[in-house]
Write a protein that binds this DNA or RNA. Structure first.
Lengths: 121, 121
DNA sequence: TTTATTACTCTACATTTGTAGAATTAAAAA
DNA sequence: TTTTTAATTCTACAAATGTAGAGTAATAAA
């Protein structure tokens, strides 16, 4: 199962903080801050989905992500590739470089990355 | 506004077919096929969102997408980049090449694309 | 022309999602 | 120790989403 928008927003906070108590989470939200019960509900749902767990410290909990951002994201991208480019990563890559308007500098950097990748094959 | 999952699935069909009558759409679905009223509802919602329009031919309609797959997808990717890589396309690209397990051949192809891109800058 | 078929609109309804109040509890502050 | 505050759970509820039946109209087939 996957995260809803509200859950994903919360997840971003957890990924950034690595672990956080309720108050840290609320603090991380911009105004208007959500009610703490709202966050509690989301956290519970995310626990049910096995995206989050916590350690009990005294009376409150330190929450942390069970899923690495990288992995979560990877599934995302692969889904996109599957859906929009009938599974061709190259097609996607080509689209990507054309579309995202990278600067010359960025393109050079990317080229370097690719070169390194090629060497490992 | 953006498409829901069910709508996006339908949209994929329209993108592929470019335009289609109700029966073509239903046909494109795998078993178990949705009820035609289900599709009608989705189409109407998509019209409200300005994602789809149609031409009336006699008593039925030929539907077509108002939004190019490319554009729709572009927003998607840019959203991902914004959300997961604090807006750094390079960071995303790097992640992408590492994660998607491209073959040497694909990497070479990608490198070529990038080279061409660089030349135009 | 009568009948069957198809597409469309309206309405409905269960589920999921976003959001939060009320009640409870425990810890922290006074 | 009494009071305040913060975190949690329960419950609720409106809006969005997925899905489709009933009714209607128009066309195609008989």
């Amino acid at each position: 199962m996957s995260l809803t928008n509200a859950e994903e927003t919360l997840m971003q906070i957890l990924w950034k903080k690595e672990r956080a108590f309720m108050k840290d989470i609320i603090e991380a939200y911009p105004e208007p801050k959500p009610a703490t019960t709202t966050i509690a509900t989301l956290l519970k749902r995310m626990q049910d989905k096995d995206f989050v767990d916590y350690i009990q410290y005294g009376r409150s909990r330190e929450y942390f992500p069970l899923v690495a951002k990288r992995d979560y994201f990877s599934k995302h991208v692969n889904g996109l590739i599957k859906n929009f480019f009938n599974n061709s990563a190259t097609q996607f890559a080509s689209f990507f470089t054309e579309e995202t308007n990278l600067s010359k500098k960025e393109l050079e950097a990317l080229k370097k990355i690719i070169n390194d990748q090629i060497k490992t094959k």
